[in-house]
């Protein structure tokens, strides 16, 4: 095997076709994960009995086990569950009708949810309690105060961490090769083994991921600047 620099470019072109898959997996898992995370964080902050314990258990379990195990558990466990339930209730849903990428969506959303929950929780706790009290004192209801006063500030505080989570999920999406979804990593594997040029193919994949990561960081920096335009000094 001899290093072939020109093949890096060839591989890069071929890998471009797999970028959308990676981005879709990242976007879906981050979006659903954010919603799960928000609910989990609120459950824990408001210490709702039973539910907050479940939320804490969920976060601990997910953060204590590798993302790969979540994916494998969902991949092998969900079809079993779905088939058992449809047999029980006579549904027409078959586990084989779930697309492969669906497993990735579900499992990564669950993973992202736990990580996001901690990010959002720390953001919410960082907002000064006086802000909420001030909102109440001008007659806002709790949902109003949360939506108008607390969330915007909490989001501004946790933006860097959210961007880290997004990057984490982007990198984590490489695991989908285990459930045979063709993302950048899996495509690199294919390109590498068909041409027998492993180093070059993975180098190209690394370059793409590096570029995507830098892009996310750049976008975050722009958003952060925008948010801070309206937010000079004070709580955040």
């Amino acid at each position: 095997m001899k290093l072939d620099p020109s093949f890096i470019w060839t591989a890069l072109i071929q890998l471009l076709s797999a970028i959308p898959t990676t981005l879709v997996i990242t976007a879906v898992s981050v979006t659903i994960g954010f919603i799960i995370g928000l609910i989990t964080a609120l459950l824990r902050i408001y210490k709702i009995p039973v539910l907050s314990q479940i939320a804490a258990g969920y976060v601990t379990f997910i953060r204590g086990t590798p993302m790969l195990t979540h994916l494998l558990l969902i991949y092998f466990g969900l079809p079993m569950l779905v088939d058992a339930l449809s047999a029980q209730f006579g549904w027409s849903i078959k586990s084989s009708s779930i697309p492969m990428i669906g497993f990735a969506f579900i499992s990564f959303s669950i993973t992202a949810g736990a990580y996001m929950a901690e990010v959002i929780r720390s953001g919410l706790l960082a907002v000064n309690r006086g802000q909420l009290e001030a909102a109440y004192s001008v007659g806002m209801t709790t949902p109003q105060a949360l939506r108008r006063i607390v969330f915007p500030q909490a989001l501004a505080v946790s933006l860097p961490n959210l961007s880290n989570s997004v990057i984490g999920m982007l990198h984590g999406s490489t695991l989908v090769f285990t459930v045979s979804v063709v993302d950048i990593n899996a495509k690199a594997q294919i390109v590498a083994s068909t041409n027998w040029k492993f180093f070059e193919a993975y180098l190209a994949a690394a370059v793409i991921f590096w570029g995507l990561t830098l892009l996310i960081e750049r976008i975050t920096a722009v958003i952060e600047k925008r948010i801070n335009l309206y937010n000079r000094g004070g709580v955040a």
């Binding site: 953060r63 590798p66 993302m67 790969l68 993973t111 992202a112 990580y115 901690e118 990010v119 929780r121 720390s122 706790l125 946790s158 961490n161 880290n164 989570s165 997004v166 990057i167 984490g168 999920m169 990198h171 984590g172 695991l175």
Partner: peptide
Amino acid sequence: MVASVDAGKGGTEV
């Protein structure tokens, strides 16, 4: 908690 969030490894954490 902040530190755990700051490590920036989503799963990456993984």
